[in-house]
Design a protein around this nucleic acid. Structure first.
Lengths: 105, 105
DNA sequence: CAAACATGCAACCACATGGTTGCATGTTTT
DNA sequence: AAAACATGCAACCATGTGGTTGCATGTTTG
């Protein structure tokens, strides 16, 4: 996984509106854009742009169905983000351990 | 933890340069700004701005020491980010499980 | 004290972002 | 066929972001 792709995922999650969208999608079934736009406090087209950002980062996928478009969470992106943080934490813990061993010598 | 604070953490991680900084900090000891600015391909002041973004999101802490300033990773922020994703994934998995049980009926 | 060093601050610039409005287009429903 | 619906596209605007340069300030070192 490239740094850039990971950064894009975090960037996509780095906005309250988009975070709210992702949260609602993790909750239940895939929603269509209209439903998803509600309760965000912005216009439908505003919401559309945010959804597009999520699509570009591959955090979400679009599935056209008739006159509406379903929006579905892509759990793989979440996992990649989490894995990246986990790897950082592992390095961090390892460093702390080495420090501990050094001081105990 | 507020949505906004979490969003700020992800936003801070949502840039290749800042991601690289965080990675270097997770690796070893706290570095001072000058060292940290090297190998980023941008000017010292450019790097300083990125570090400030990490400070604002509390991903990193500054510790002045004489004429230099040490930059140290704050693992708590990483954990908060990871926990948030984990919670999303838990909801997601639960939904998949419910769907599975439904189809098996 | 003077030179070198590490950093801070402010102004500036180009471009990205988050939002809006207006209108067009394809799809159901009646 | 007409009305209602869900969405798309483009233009526009204010503000934020990522970067630069120049200069000022405090701290070591010689």
């Amino acid at each position: 996984m490239s740094q850039a792709a990971i950064a894009q995922i975090f960037k996509a999650l780095g906005d309250p509106v988009r975070l709210q969208i992702v949260q609602r999608l993790s909750n239940g079934t895939a929603l269509c854009m209209g439903e998803l736009s509600k309760d965000l406090g912005i216009s439908r087209q505003g919401a559309r742009k945010q959804i597009q950002a999520l699509v570009s980062a591959k955090v979400v996928q679009l599935h056209p169905a008739g006159r509406e478009v379903k929006v579905q969470l892509d759990a793989a992106a979440l996992q990649q983000g989490r894995d990246f943080i986990t790897a950082l934490e592992a390095q961090w813990d390892q460093r702390l351990l080495a420090l501990k061993q050094f001081t105990e010598q």
